[in-house]
């Protein structure tokens, strides 16, 4: 097992190298001088030259890449050209917001998605199944941007039940002092329940919006995995033995159907943890996604570069964890 994990970690090296090369290439090979693009319609040639020098754009491309890679190895993603804040520092500030949002979205997706999938499989071709599956098709295909605005208009503008956006209200925000940046955690350890309910109410709409796609995918995957397992011989055997139908589904079928589901959970969770650009932007959620969007708006190359690398690395790491978890779920899988 230890050797397997080590091997997998080593496999990360070429993957990360590929990511860094792609990110570097995207930003440097698109037409137009990054320095001109960043400074905009009023830059003088002198200013462009100063910025080119600062960004190291005057070096030959391969040298620039090597320098970039060298910094990367030292976890130095550079600093934002505009704000001067180190990229690593900005990620540290923004990631807790994304993390909280991802966890709640994933929870919603799991709590609703798996039961829906199981029910749909057990009641195959029933009305329940058809409704669940067409609903999930809708969930996958609904544009997040549109759904987010819809929820805001319904729950924040018309009904006024929930706040439209942000992580914490203005008034509560004055008294609440974050410690770790994980607001839910901070409010809990400070016993500040007024802040906690305010924070959770802010979390709900973006989390719901963000959960639709993973929820729908989970429901569909669970259904098809369950269908496959339910047709297996050992299920028939279990039924023949007189095992209660509940236990057949819950113990014999569901556990064995979990493997593909876990894979999807990993993929989806990895995506969520990298920040959701549209959802975070719509809900003014100060996480990684909104940060990357800000970087794109300002054409802040180091921010976009650092952001994309971070997202990619998180994705790869979460999926590594998923692969390792297979061993625990399915004893037939042996790692050598």
């Amino acid at each position: 097992m230890g050797r397997y994990i080590l091997g997998r970690l080593l496999q990360l090296v070429p993957v990360l190298l590929g990511i860094s090369l792609l990110v570097f290439a995207f930003l440097h090979l698109i037409p137009g001088d990054p320095a001109v693009t960043m400074l905009g319609d009023r830059a003088t040639p002198d200013q462009v030259e100063v910025l080119r020098e600062r960004m190291g754009l005057n070096e030959p491309l391969p040298l620039q890449y090597l320098a970039f890679l060298g910094n990367l190895l030292r976890f130095d993603l550079g600093t934002s050209i505009f704000t001067g804040v180190p990229i690593i520092e900005e990620i540290r500030l923004r990631w807790p917001a994304t993390f909280e949002l991802s966890v709640l979205s994933m929870l919603i997706a799991l709590v609703l998605g798996i039961p829906i999938g199981v029910i749909a499989a057990v009641r195959k071709n029933s009305i329940v199944d058809n409704v669940a599956m067409s609903g999930s098709l809708l969930g996958v295909s609904m544009p997040v941007y549109w759904l987010g605005l819809l929820l805001i208009y319904l729950f924040a503008v018309n009904l006024q039940w929930l706040p439209p956006s942000g992580r914490i209200g203005v008034d509560v925000g004055y008294s609440f002092k974050p410690i770790t940046g994980f607001f839910v955690f901070d409010a809990l350890i400070q016993g500040d329940f007024k802040a906690l309910s305010n924070i959770l109410s802010h979390l709900l709409l973006p989390a719901l919006t963000l959960s639709t796609i993973p929820l729908a995918i989970l429901a569909r995957i669970t259904r098809s995995a369950m269908l496959e397992v339910l047709s297996q011989d050992y299920i028939r055997t279990a039924r023949a033995k007189g095992v209660l139908e509940f236990w057949v589904i819950a113990k014999h079928a569901l556990k064995n159907a979990m493997l593909p589901v876990i894979t999807i959970v990993g993929l989806e969770f990895g995506t969520l943890l990298g920040g959701a650009i549209l959802t975070e932007t719509i809900f003014s959620w100060p996480g990684i996604g909104k940060w990357i969007y800000e970087g794109i708006l300002l054409r802040d190359y180091p921010v976009v570069q650092g952001g994309v690398i971070f997202v990619a690395v998180v994705f790869v790491l979460v999926n590594l964890l998923v692969d390792i978890s297979y061993a625990f779920l399915d004893p037939r899988i042996q790692y050598k």
Binding site: G169, F182, L188
Partner: peptide, 21 residues
């Protein structure tokens, strides 16, 4: 979710009193 290492996976059912501030 706990395997994911989340420190705050309390059952997060937002309270009704959390109206638009």
């Amino acid at each position: 979710a706990n395997c994911g290492g989340s420190p705050e996976t309390t059952t997060s059912t937002p309270a009704d009193e959390a109206a638009a501030p």
